[in-house]
Amino acid sequence: MTQADVRVLVTIGMLVAYGLIMPTLGFFATSALFLLLHMLYLGIRGPVWLASPIILLLGTAWALFERFLGVPLPHGLIY
């Protein structure tokens, strides 16, 4: 098993955890947590690269789905 295989398996594990936690914690909190941890795990460093996907992606998703389209995403304990 190569290091790449390990990273694939850990990613699958993190996605499973995402699916288990999302209904209770809500889409936005879980996604922010996943993005941060997954990027850190893959060796992404530097505040710009770590913060911009979270802000851009979740910001756009919020504006688009919650405001513009009126398709509510699952909310939970934290938003």
Partner: peptide
Amino acid sequence: QGVLASAVAI
């Protein structure tokens, strides 16, 4: 690539 991987997942 790592940023892409996480972002595409979400």
